[in-house]
Amino acid sequence: MRLPALATACTGLVGLALALIFFYAPTDADQGFSQRIFYFHVPIALTSYACFGWGAWKALRYLRTRDERADLESYVAIHQGVIFGALTLVTGSIWAKASWGVWWSWSENELVLFLVLFLFYCAYFMLRFSVDAGPARANMSAVYALFGVVLIPVSFLAIRLSQKFIHPVVFNSHGPQMTNAQFFVFCVSFAAVLTLFATLYQVELAGKRLDAHVRELRELLT
């Protein structure tokens, strides 16, 4: 019941966001058409943070309640976070190529942070695959997920510091200089990507629960 409504809202919002990005958003004076990838890249990156944050919240819930559902939810949120994180790396890389002619730039703090987070959260899956399912695995996953959200600001700070050390350049922040039209498109796009996450999250969760249910039934039959 909830899922179809969410999926419909998601399709509508993503469609609207695409239309706005390509037909409504003003073309950037400096970067031209390619700047439009901003409307994909930044919302995806922010959604990825939201996924990791949600995963850590569910991890904390698990440690408090020892409810297996929270463990599964934490896992699914982080799984989605890694997917959005990989997309952030890809879109960021494309943007770097379009703007500066290189696929990778160490001077883009956020991109570097996503590389660190991507490495960290991929190890989360290695941890889960290497430990047998059960409370021990759920505990460790939860602890690791909590370390992840603390690592995000710590890494960001470290990357900024090293930036200052390696190339003494000023950071250009591209947040507040948006025009109203640009900001509107950005907000719609962000809402679309967040809804996309919520939908994918529910779909994966439903699938995983169904899977567990089927296996339980099969176990009972044998």
Binding site: V116, L117, L119, F120, C122, A123, M126, L127, S130, V131, A136, M140, Y144, F147, L151, V154, S155, L157, A158, I159, L161, S162
Partner: peptide
Amino acid sequence: AGRARELLLPLLFLPMAIPIVAA
């Protein structure tokens, strides 16, 4: 606790060590 043991620790630990080295 894991099966991969020696393999797992570098994967878990190195991302945490990046801020240490950077700073």
